[in-house]
Amino acid sequence: MLSLFKTAWGVFLRAFEKRVTVSYPEERPYLAPRFRGRIILSRDPDGGERCVACYLCAAACPVDCIALDAAETEDGRRYPSFFRINFSRCIFCGYCEEACPTYAIQLTPDFEMSEYARQSLVYEKEDLLISGTGKYPDYNFYRVAGLAIKGKDKGEAENETPPVDIRGLMP
């Protein structure tokens, strides 16, 4: 019985504590760069699309809200011919970003994306692709990967030796 009064007294004392509510939108909270908000697709430092349509983000997505289809340019670069995120399903878990081997898909500190119609929450590639590099300014997948594309031949990637001469006779 006494505990009830103690509880009530304790709760009453909370009246003199500082309030924790942040009065959004007048007051804006600090969002860390790694905040998991609206998803974007970034470009590499040369301006090419970073996404190589490897489907890993789609596979990692626990709510299966990412769909894409791979295509290839004349240069030998693979890219998504369409890339769709259904934000009405997205739970902003960030697994897609973790899965992405090219830093293409990134979550940004933006959560203000309410819509009146659910259909408007379906983002296509043109809504997702930005013109910058996002959080990773220097990374360029094709400079690391052993695949040759136009402008980067075999053996020209980082840490690669020139192509083997298979007709050479030297031991």
Binding site: A58, A59, D64, A67, S88, R89, Q119, L121
Partner: peptide, 15 residues
């Protein structure tokens, strides 16, 4: 099991 994108495949046409 790992089949992906089922809530997004048709979302282009209707959510």
């Amino acid at each position: 099991q790992r089949f992906s994108g089922r809530t997004a495949i048709h979302a282009g046409r209707s959510v």
